[in-house]
């Protein structure tokens, strides 16, 4: 695999944080969180890696979303 850029590393780090947050969710709905996280990241995986503006925006909104969903009060998520 080619050496990854700083921005790519940031995305992967966010992905890791999200997956770690999923582990803290209740066992019966954890799979919904996993599926949601996976589809959200893979949905945008075809973006050109030179499109810095879009990627930075997505990272920012991803972090916001992680902050929101990390709340232990959120116990389930729509599994589309």
């Amino acid at each position: 695999m080619a050496k990854i850029s700083g921005l790519q590393r940031e995305v992967l780090s966010l992905y890791r944080q999200c997956l770690r947050a999923c582990r803290k969710k209740p066992a019966d709905t954890r799979l919904n969180f996993y599926n949601h996280t996976r589809s959200e990241f893979h949905r945008n995986s075809s973006i050109n890696k030179k499109d810095f503006g879009t990627i930075e925006y997505l990272i920012r909104s991803g972090r916001k979303k992680l902050e929101t969903y990390e709340d232990p009060g959120i116990r389930n998520i729509a599994n589309l």
Partner: peptide, 11 residues
């Protein structure tokens, strides 16, 4: 596997 999948595997 792409880089996202690799992260999943390592996790």
């Amino acid at each position: 596997l792409d880089s996202l999948d690799t992260v999943e595997v390592v996790m």
